[in-house]
Design a protein around this nucleic acid. Structure first.
Length: 263
DNA sequence: ACGTGCTCCTGTGTGC
DNA sequence: TGCACACAGGAGCACG
């Protein structure tokens, strides 16, 4: 379920469970999870190393390997890291397993849309994938510049990892809701007030969720995310929420509280 | 250079 | 209860 806050939560989890432990085995339990690499390539690069440092860029996690290079980790839609000590506690859908002297770190991923790979450095990976800057590193001026260079629906711009990296379907809905902006609003139609609110709300929403450990159920009831399902009502005005398809993804918003822009 | 839609995968919830 | 089918918080790619 990983957007930026979840991946940051996973990074901290791995920091607290799995660093500086010699990796005895690194095994792809399913070949798809390391695509387009060969399972062997990853095992060879990782076994005998330890994770030295962690780094996150948008929804991507990087772990520096003591023998050189970095592990890359993308969580797809259903991936999560699980540390455990006894094999009988191995999670279901274990797709990649790191084995330490005392314990294991599994990549559990039901849908297998996640990926594990290796790269020379996070910078190299970001360049290869043409990822935009991590959204939390953006200044307001950077953010505004990105919006001004873009066209199309505001929500699509927020979610485009090549423009800015880290925001997905759910948090874009939330930031737009809190900013009173219709997800379909063309970015060119946003006023400077809209852009300013959007910048602050994107950051606020992501930070708040990180504080809550990426657990949506711990976000305030005033958030759209707590009401993001069919038939629910806007937490602000009580009106019916609308759900539409935008770029193949489901968007929820309040047609009363969210406008096409111009402030 | 762009936006749209298809595709990769499997598990779960919904409605008949 | 059982089954079929839509749908899911992501992203790369082909196509127009």
């Amino acid at each position: 379920m990983p957007e930026l806050p979840e991946v940051e939560t996973y990074r901290r989890y791995i920091e607290s469970t799995s660093m500086h432990r010699p990796i005895m085995r690194a095994e792809a339990k399913h070949p798809l999870i390391v695509r387009p690499f060969q399972a062997r390539t990853i095992s060879t690069a990782v076994e005998g190393s330890a994770f030295l440092r962690s780094y996150r860029h948008g929804k991507n996690l990087f772990l520096e390997l003591s023998r050189g290079g970095w592990l890359t980790w993308h969580f797809g839609m259903t991936g999560e890291p699980v540390f455990f000590e006894r094999m009988r506690d191995e999670p279901p859908h274990d797709r990649f397993l790191f084995t330490f002297e005392n314990g294991h770190l599994a990549f559990s991923d039901a849908r297998m849309l996640g990926r594990i790979g290796v790269t020379a450095s996070p910078d190299e990976y970001v360049r290869e994938k043409k990822l935009g800057p991590d959204v939390l590193t953006l200044t307001e001026a950077d953010f505004t510049r990105i919006l001004e260079r873009s066209r199309g629906a505001a929500k699509m711009v927020l979610m485009d990892q090549h423009k800015m990296s880290g925001v997905g379907n759910l948090y874009s809905d939330e930031a737009l809701f809190q900013s009173g902006i219709d997800p379909r609003a063309p970015v060119q139609c946003l006023g400077s007030g809209d852009k300013e609110r959007l910048y602050h709300n994107v950051r606020k929403v992501l930070r708040r969720s990180i504080e809550r450990g990426g657990d949506l159920s711990r976000l305030p009831q005033t958030y759209l995310l707590r009401h993001r399902s069919r038939g629910e009502r806007c937490p602000r005005c009580g009106g019916d929420l609308l759900s539409i398809h935008l770029g193949g993804r489901t968007s929820y918003f309040c047609p009363h509280c969210q406008r096409e822009g111009g402030t």
